[in-house]
Amino acid sequence: MAAYRYDYEVITQWIEPGEKVLDLGCGDGSLLKHLIEVRQVQGYGVENDPDKLLACVRNGVNVLQANMDEGLTDFEDGFFDHVIMSLSLQAMHNTQGILAEMLRVGHEAVVSFPNFGYWRHRQSILNGRMPVSESLPHQWFNTPNVRFFTIADFDALCEMNGIAVRERIGFDEGKVVTEEANFLASMAVYRLGRD
């Protein structure tokens, strides 16, 4: 089991009981399992890593193997209430494509990602080294992340693509950040929609 992650609590708040939920890059299925237990959701995960897929089956959550970089073409428009991508967006090549797909198959999208603009990360860069932290645990040479962006970058992307930011919560390693999120938050969770 993966460690309990503090973005789960926020995500759970945004899910109504009995919703249809899709979790993209669902890992071992622990978020889905949590949502099934506390929100009785009809949950499905998407995972392309064989070991994580196996962990989902062991956890008893529905998991579908698919390569998300090829889009969500097999999923129907508006089928899900929420489509979640927890700490995986930064590992996707086709960022704009997957965001559009999430908002095609779901009424709302929930996205969390590590904030590269976090002050410790900036400090690390100023010191000449790529950041390694709780939210960015990998070294530059073995990170699965392929997109490096800040909260401000993501806000700009949403605006450019006509995506409505309905809620945004920043965290500084577990504690909610109320202001200057792009500087003080190590991670952010967004609730997105189309107006």
Partner: peptide, 21 residues
């Protein structure tokens, strides 16, 4: 196989799908 999977998903059935290498 995916035809079966996504038709089951449409019907909100419990389904898992593995594509074995």
């Amino acid at each position: 196989s995916r035809e079966i999977v996504y038709a089951l998903l449409h019907n909100r059935r419990n389904v898992s799908y593995a594509e074995i290498d």
